[in-house]
């Protein structure tokens, strides 16, 4: 039983990070209908910025966490301005392919730095002894990570529901022409959507980096695992991203806890989400909370 609960706890930890990663992806999709395949690379960039600020510039970790979020905010905004702004109105297929190109470019740029090939880990700033309660252990880093994640998710949902910018983002996602006619600048909203996505990606990256250590492969894999998460949650639902993130974390933990080692299976946690994705696409493509668009072929 305690093994089961342990899996549940670590599933929730992993899942909340998935939720945070998926948040930025959903933000971009919701406002501009672009699938951002370079999201994992932005996550990695954010994590590396945090690391270099903490370790090389000796800035306290929470401050560098914030600074890296600000940096990726502007980075993602300029990415949108340079590459995607001029593709507004082009067919969506070429916009998606531009993000594929971006993915490759950022990959290359990161490989140019030492971060591409070596592993790093954040200096410990919390007690290393895990909290053990009724046989279930959770480390302080994980606990703080989950708390930060939920604070950020709360902040984002407030931002979307209440603030003027958030409301204009929702307006643009609903109807571009109508929102233009009431004075919302659509390009600005696209820029802001990318910027907030970058911000949340940096947060996700830093949390992941603290929990699992910095490895480029692991970090940019988060950009791909985001796909099953957002499909399960519904492509354009923030709540869906959070719920589906946690479900996906649980599925992965149960898979590696119960399936691995039996019947000659290994690493099932890396494949189950994608099998689920294929099945979902066939039977429930709008996910748990997504809008049921009438998009029949």
């Amino acid at each position: 039983m305690s093994y089961f609960l342990q899996l549940v706890v670590s599933g929730i930890v992993v899942g909340s990070i998935y939720a945070l990663s998926a948040l930025g992806f959903v933000l971009i999709y919701k406002s501009s209908r672009v699938l951002n395949l370079a999201h994992g690379q932005i996550i990695a960039t954010g994590a590396f910025i945090t690391y270099s600020l903490t370790v090389m510039a000796h800035i306290p970790i929470f401050l560098s966490f914030l600074l890296s979020m600000i940096a990726t905010f502007f980075l993602a905004m300029s990415v949108e301005k340079i590459f995607l702004r001029r593709l507004i109105g082009e067919p969506i297929i070429s916009v998606i392919m531009v993000t594929i190109g971006l993915m490759s470019i950022i990959d290359g740029l990161i490989y140019l730095t030492p971060f591409g090939s070596e592993n790093f880990s954040f200096p410990p700033f919390l007690p290393e002894q895990p909290i053990i309660y009724a046989g279930i252990s959770i480390s302080y880093t994980q606990l703080v990570g989950v708390i930060i994640t939920f604070i950020l998710i709360g902040a984002f949902s407030w931002f979307f529901k209440k603030s003027t910018v958030g409301i204009s983002m929702r307006a643009v996602s609903d109807d571009q022409l109508a929102s233009m006619s009431i004075g919302v600048s659509v390009p600005r909203v696209f820029g802001l959507a990318w910027a907030t996505a970058g911000l949340s990606a940096a947060a996700a990256g830093s949390v992941i980096g603290n929990i699992t250590g910095l490895n480029f492969g692991t970090l940019h894999a988060f950009g791909i695992i985001v796909f099953p998460v957002v499909i399960l949650g519904g492509l354009d639902s923030l709540l869906g991203a959070v719920v589906a993130g946690i479900i996906m974390g649980l599925i992965q933990q149960f898979a590696s806890g119960y399936l691995d080692g039996n019947w000659g299976l290994y690493g099932t946690a890396n494949v189950l989400p994608y099998i689920l994705l294929l099945v979902l696409l066939l039977f429930k493509p709008h996910g748990l909370f997504g809008t049921h668009e009438i998009e029949r072929v």
């Binding site: 590459f83 001029r86 593709l87 070429s94 392919m97 531009v98 594929i100 190109g101 971006l102 993915m103 490759s104 470019i105 950022i106 990959d107 290359g108 740029l109 490989y111 140019l112 591409g116």
Partner: peptide
């Protein structure tokens, strides 16, 4: 490093 960088640049520049 240069390989993905050049492919990405080529994709993006051609599309643009």
């Amino acid at each position: 490093a240069l390989r993905p960088l050049s492919f990405g640049l080529v994709i993006v520049l051609f599309l643009m």
